[in-house]
Write a protein that binds this DNA or RNA. Structure first.
Length: 607
RNA sequence: GGGGCCGUAGUUCAGUUGGUUAGAACGCGUGCCUGUCACGCACGAGGUCGCGGGUUCGAGUCCCGUCGGCCCCGCCA
């Protein structure tokens, strides 16, 4: 029934056929995407990685092939021998639409079960079904284009790093648990019962040790593992561009990343200017209410706390108030405003006030308590023009040392911007099939954030915790404040943000063992505790560690943004669900008792 | 850990105030069809209404629990 491949050799990709191939004899191999059976004439849409080509079986011209074609079903795997001819009527919808292949022979290489969903671009299966049959979902052009884009971007980055003098070095996947940061994935040791390796949250310590080793410039396309709850932009295993360099200032790291990102962006035909914008953390909070500001649009925040002084008795609150202008928002209905207020409460606001700025004047319920003059000044401070709506949110004084009202206003800014559709959409990128999946012109706003505090207060642990990791360098002048005013200590850390998405963070590190010891003390770690957890690293630091620094970029996120996707899952071949499961492989799963016995592990019970 | 939305045919969904025989489209099967391209036409098969319990004369529909998917907060760079 089925045919063997034998000596048949593919000559072309189906999706690559063009008018230039007219008259050529070709051998194509791929999947049956669609069959249109008109009786004595049968059309097949043959799909391979590069696209789709129409195959014709004509009973008059090739009776044997035609008879065989009658048995074809969706997703059968076939080889076609035939000749490329120009179509009587072209199909402008597909890249190969000007030609078709008149089949002289058909080889059925494999059959297929009826697929659970039709494999076509306008997919209407739920994500759950798509993930369960991921191999079928990946046959579609869009996922293939995303994986191709991912390959090209990472290849470009790898080449760029090499050309910039970086060596790619692999670090262990089986390593030891780190006490700070996210929860570790643990791997039991059979040789050492009761002991565990941990999968790396990042190669942080190893890359610093490589600097101590004199590698000077290291990079790695590194898999990292964090056992925390998932989001659309967070997977438990993910990929970073991890790099570290010796004898550098933050600016030197910026320069490398700017070059690398410029090249990555060129993969989708976008040129971005360097150097990227710089912004202080406190300015990002004050102006955008976020530590990852989306600079593709304005709507900056204004601190209008002072104008509320007169109304504190009546309004009954002590915190600060931040306002922003929703351009053209004056037309929002009563109901929409109520929904906005509800949203603000959800973000943690004590209260939300609005001011409508219309040609006939300024209208706000606030006028009663604060007076017309104050309301006018708030509107001015927020930069509102006629037709706009000013939204002001009040919140408790501070969260972790930053203005809570600013953070709430920052969330409202993003929410409103999306609602009012003021965020420029993305540029197109071409797929293998020559289709583009996004249309509108877009903006690409990179920004470096600097000036982070070294510590932030941890409510859960009731102590100062490192805002980044505990090896983050410290601004020299602030050394003396370590013991006296830790909240004022500034770090040498930095974040790279693109369009409101945090791509990664890094720092110039601590390279002196004595400073590192003081940091651990400030974090409430005794010398013994520090020795126990980081002993080998502290030892290494004492052997002539060069000043060094680096960064790690989330490559999944980079590709997600370039592909104009809203979820990391769309740019990862085999992603996990929000419950951290692989629906296709059905992982995690139980293991046979013997395997547990080997490891000396007893299961306490299904919690 | 918390909040929201969802779960009915292979798939995507509809399903009235709780009412007897659970529908549609696509897909699938059979037949016809020589220029289709989401081919068309005719006929047909296909259901543990996620699972468990409860209320009721009667549950897809109401209640409780549970499992699974997505989004958000917490958590996490």
């Amino acid at each position: 029934m089925l045919d063997f491949l034998g000596n048949l050799k593919r000559t072309h990709y189906a999706g690559a056929l063009r008018v230039a191939h007219e008259g050529q004899s070709v051998v194509l191999m791929g999947w049956v995407a669609r069959r249109r059976d008109l009786g004595n004439l049968i059309f097949i849409d043959l799909r391979d990685r590069e696209g789709i080509a129409q195959i014709v079986f004509n009973k008059d011209q090739s009776a044997a092939a035609h008879a065989k074609a009658e048995t074809l079903r969706s997703e059968y795997v076939v080889a076609i021998e035939g000749r490329v001819v120009r179509r009587q009527k072209a199909n402008p919808e597909i890249a190969t639409g000007e030609v078709e292949v008149v089949a002289s022979a058909l080889h059925i290489l494999n059959t297929s079960a009826t697929p659970p969903f039709v494999i076509e671009e306008e997919i209407n299966a739920t994500e759950e079904t798509r993930l369960r049959y991921r191999y079928l979902d990946l046959r579609r052009a869009k996922p293939q284009a995303n994986l191709a884009l991912r390959h090209k971007v990472i290849l470009e980055i790898r080449n760029a790093m090499s050309e910039l003098g970086f060596y790619e070095v692999e670090t262990p996947m089986l390593t030891r648990a780190t006490p700070e940061g996210a929860r570790d994935y643990l791997v039991p040791s059979r040789v050492h019962p009761g002991q565990f390796y941990a999968l790396p949250q990042s190669p942080q310590i190893f890359k610093q040790i490589l600097m101590i080793s004199g590698l000077d410039r290291y990079f790695q396309i590194a898999r990292c593992f964090r056992d925390e709850d998932l989001r659309a932009d967070r997977q438990p295993d993910f990929t970073q561009l991890d790099l570290e360099m010796s004898f550098v200032r933050p600016e030197d790291v910026f320069e490398v990343i700017e070059q690398v990102m410029q090249r990555a962006m060129r993969v989708i035909g976008v040129n971005v200017a360097a150097p990227f914008r710089r912004m202080l953390y406190k300015d990002a909070i004050r102006r955008y209410g976020s530590d990852k500001p989306d600079l593709r649009f304005g709507m900056e925040l204004a601190d209008v706390t002072q104008f509320f002084d007169a109304g504190r008795e009546t309004l009954k609150f002590e915190g600060s108030v931040f306002a922003l202008t929703a351009t053209g928002g004056a037309t929002l209905s009563r109901k929409q405003l109520d929904e906005l207020a509800e949203k603000a409460k959800g973000f943690g606001a004590r209260a939300m006030y609005t001011i409508k700025v219309a040609p006939e004047g300024i209208a706000s319920a606030l006028a009663k308590t604060l007076g017309d003059e104050a309301v006018k000044k708030i509107a001015e401070a927020a930069g509102a023009k006629s037709g706009d709506l000013v939204v002001a949110v009040a919140a408790q004084k501070q969260i972790k040392g930053t203005e809570a009202a600013a953070l709430v206003a920052g969330q409202m800014r993003l929410h409103l911007a999306e609602k009012l559709n003021v965020i420029p959409a993305g540029r197109p990128f071409a797929t293998a099939q020559g289709k583009s999946f996004a249309s509108a012109q877009g903006k690409w706003e990179f920004v470096w954030l600097t000036g982070f505090p070294l510590f932030e207060w941890s409510d859960t642990e009731n102590r100062w915790a490192p805002a980044q990791h505990p090896f983050t360098g410290i601004v020299e002048e602030d050394l003396e404040k370590l013991e006296t005013a830790p909240w004022e200590v500034r770090s040498k850390g930095y974040d790279l943000v693109l369009n409101g998405v945090e791509l990664g963070s890094g720092s110039v590190r601590i390279h002196r063992a004595d400073v590192q010891a003081r940091i651990f003390r400030a974090l409430g770690l005794s010398d013994e505790q520090a020795r126990q957890r980081f002993g080998f690293f502290l030892d290494a630091l004492s052997f002539g560690t060069p000043p060094h620094g680096g960064i790690a970029l989330g490559l999944d996120r980079v590709v997600m943004l370039l592909a104009r996707e809203k979820s990391l899952r769309e740019v990862i071949a085999f992603p996990k669900t929000t419950a951290a499961q692989d629906l296709m492989a059905d992982a995690p799963n139980t293991v046979p008792q013997e395997q547990l016995d080997d490891l000396g592990i007893a299961i306490k019970g299904p919690k």
